[in-house]
């Protein structure tokens, strides 16, 4: 059941649509693929779109945080986009907040944020 998660590239930005029910194996492979793409294609920003993700539990929370941390260590900024209201409510009540990760309402707004931070030379974080 290895579903390939597509990684799109627009300029120096990677856009990854995170699917719900991501398994351990898929998550490991996805992290690996993303980090290799970042290195190979000189990527500035990473957009993790979670608009189809129906919940964030401690497992999914850890995967997204790790992806963001690893990308940051390599020199790329991460934006998480598209979180649904009910996902935000339940995850904060549960105890997760992604305080150290940049978020945006949509992929387009995530792209805008990356463009602004690139122009201003703001360091990622």
């Amino acid at each position: 059941m290895q579903n390939q998660v597509p990684i799109l590239q627009m300029g120096d930005v990677l856009i990854v649509t995170i699917k719900p029910d991501l398994t351990d194996d898929e998550a490991v492979k996805l992290k690996d693929d993303i980090l290799h793409e970042i290195k190979k294609n000189n990527i500035y920003g990473l957009i993790l779109d979670i608009s189809v993700v129906d919940l964030i539990d401690s497992y999914m929370g850890r995967i997204l945080s790790e992806m963001s941390d690893m990308s940051r260590l390599m020199g790329a900024s991460t934006v998480i986009t598209g979180m649904s209201p009910y996902v935000a409510i339940s995850m904060v009540e549960f105890g997760l907040n992604f305080r150290s990760i940049q978020t945006a309402l949509t992929v387009e707004k995530g792209m805008e944020w990356l463009n602004i931070s690139r122009t201003m030379g703001v360091s990622h974080g």
Partner: peptide, 27 residues
């Protein structure tokens, strides 16, 4: 769990609270 919660008329937020909880316990 989410399907059953939906059938019983739980709100989308409650369905999600229930699904997260089941996920944590099962993991």
């Amino acid at each position: 769990g989410r399907e059953m919660a939906k059938q019983l008329g739980f709100s989308l937020v409650d369905q999600t609270r229930i699904a997260i909880s089941i996920s944590e316990l099962a993991r």
